[in-house]
């Protein structure tokens, strides 16, 4: 069974340690611009939510990629993968992602997206609030994800 990364926005306190953990994993230093996960914060309302690649089954970023650099992983992996060598930096994937979770890193001039740290996501390991979880991709977790999605939508309405 595959694993999936679950977000619990109601537990997020906006500390952005997930971004630091991600960038540290990528580069051994702290540069939030290198992070694949991004925390969105509405300061007036004090609301934050971490957003990252959802490894979609029907992924807009894969559909629009003209070179096949963005592609589905091998059967059973459940991941959307990026072949950096085939990427031409057109950024169509950045535009296509409904979660804004394909990032263009202006410092390295490369597309960056979550690769789940090869199955050991550091954002999950370092999150102090349990707002991120790495769980079995069972039907019930998918159902839970839909519930979270609904909640997220409700909160987005609230802060609008």
């Amino acid at each position: 069974m595959g694993k999936m990364l679950m977000i619990y926005p109601d537990k997020c306190t906006g500390c952005r340690i997930c971004e630091l953990a991600c960038s540290f994993q990528q580069e051994g230093s702290f540069r939030p611009g290198a992070s694949r996960i991004k925390t969105l914060t509405w300061e007036r309302e004090g609301f934050s939510v971490p957003l990252l690649c959802q490894q979609c089954d029907d992924a807009g970023c894969v559909s629009v990629c003209p070179t096949g650099a963005m592609h589905y992983g091998p059967p059973g992996s459940d991941l959307v993968e990026l072949n950096q060598d085939a990427c031409i930096g057109c950024k169509l994937c950045v535009i296509a992602c409904p979660f804004g979770s394909v990032n263009y890193d202006s410092a390295t001039r490369l597309i960056a997206k979550c690769d789940t740290c090869a199955g050991a996501p550091q954002c999950v390991a370092m999150c102090p609030n349990g707002a991120l979880e790495w769980v079995d991709d069972a039907e019930q977790t998918r159902a839970r994800k839909r519930v979270v999605g609904e909640k997220l939508k409700a909160v987005f309405e609230e802060v609008k």
């Binding site: 500390c15 004090g46 102090p128 609030n129």
Partner: peptide, 17 residues
């Protein structure tokens, strides 16, 4: 209280929204 809030890199979150 609406929710607790953390400063940057905070593992405690004493802030109060």
């Amino acid at each position: 209280l609406v929710r607790p809030k953390g400063c940057y890199a905070c593992v405690i979150s004493c802030g109060r929204v």
